[in-house]
Structure formats: C-alpha cells, structure tokens
Amino acid sequence: MKLSTKGRYGVILMIDLGMFHGEGPVSLKSVAERQSLSEHYLEQLIAPLRNAGLVRSIRGAYGGYVLAKNPQEITVGDIIRVLEGPITIVDDPEEELKELWERVRKSINDVLDSVTLQDLVEKKKFGGENIMFYI
C-alpha cells in the first residue's frame, strides 16, 4: 500500500484544522501558507472531507473550515479512507496467500484507526516540528 499526496496532504490539512479546533473557521489560504501546500490542491481535498462529515464550511468574510467532530473522534483511518478509498494490499490475491494479505490489511487498518487526529495535534503542539515530519 502506498499513500498518495491526497492522503498525506489530507492528514496535514486535518491536523492544521485540529490545531485551531474551537477557535473558529480556518481559511484554506492560511493552511496553505502555514504548511507550504497549494491552496488549489487543498480545495480539491476539502470537498470529500466535507461530504464525509469530517469538516464543515462556514460562509462569509471570516469564513473557512472547522472540524465537524472533536479531534479525538476522528482517526487517521477515517481521513485516509475518505481520500484514498478502502485500504487494499493485493488485488485478486492468490488463494494460498489470501489469509496473509487479509491479516496485513487488517493490521494496517488497526494502526490507522488507533491514531486519532488529537494524537497528531498534540504531537505537533508539543513537538514543535513541521507537520510533514509525522506523515
């Protein structure tokens, strides 16, 4: 399994929104500037996250985006599956290896589902490194 930039940048976007959870809407322009990412690319990522109920949009001059749930209720797995689709290891696995690939897939899902957005926000807040370090 290899994550695309959609998955990686989507997690970065969500961490950035999590850093400001409860403080009001965050513009994609400000996220793009802080994280050195393309605002245009972030616009493409925010729509599926909004459709999945992970973020809400706030209209108006001081609008932007906020998390639709508390950061501790959103897992990395939630974000990755919205942006990348279901996690698969092998298409049409050989019958004798099917159980092995299923165990690997389940293990990856278990890890991604065990890490919350809050976990990553806290690492960023107290670690001080650029968010890209964690992805």
Rank of each mutant, 00 (worst) to 15 (best):
L54A: 03
A47L: 13
Q35N: 15
P86A: 10
R103K: 15
T88C: 01
L97I: 00
L83W: 10
R103S: 15
V66K: 05
S38W: 15
G60R: 12
L42N: 08
E73T: 02
L97G: 07
V66R: 05
D92H: 15
E43T: 08
L42I: 09
P48L: 03
K106N: 13
E99S: 10
Q72H: 10
K98Q: 13
A68L: 06
L83A: 02
L45G: 02
E73K: 12
S57W: 05
L67A: 03
I80F: 07
A68H: 04
L37E: 11
H40M: 14
I74P: 00
H40L: 13
L97Q: 04
V111K: 05
D113F: 08
I58K: 11
V76P: 03
N109E: 14
A61G: 14
V104H: 14
V82A: 01
A47C: 07
D110T: 15
N70C: 02
A52Q: 10
L100R: 11
P71S: 11
D110S: 15
D91V: 04
E102S: 13
Q35M: 04
I74S: 04
G85E: 07
L100Y: 12
A68K: 02
E96D: 14
W101H: 15
S57I: 00
G53K: 01
S114H: 11
V82C: 03
P71T: 11
D113H: 04
E84T: 01
Q44C: 06
G77N: 04
T75C: 00
L42V: 09
K106H: 13
E84Y: 09
D113V: 08
L37M: 14
L97K: 12
P86R: 14
V76W: 03
R105A: 08
V55K: 01
G85D: 00
E99V: 02
V115A: 09
E102T: 15
K106V: 14
A52W: 03
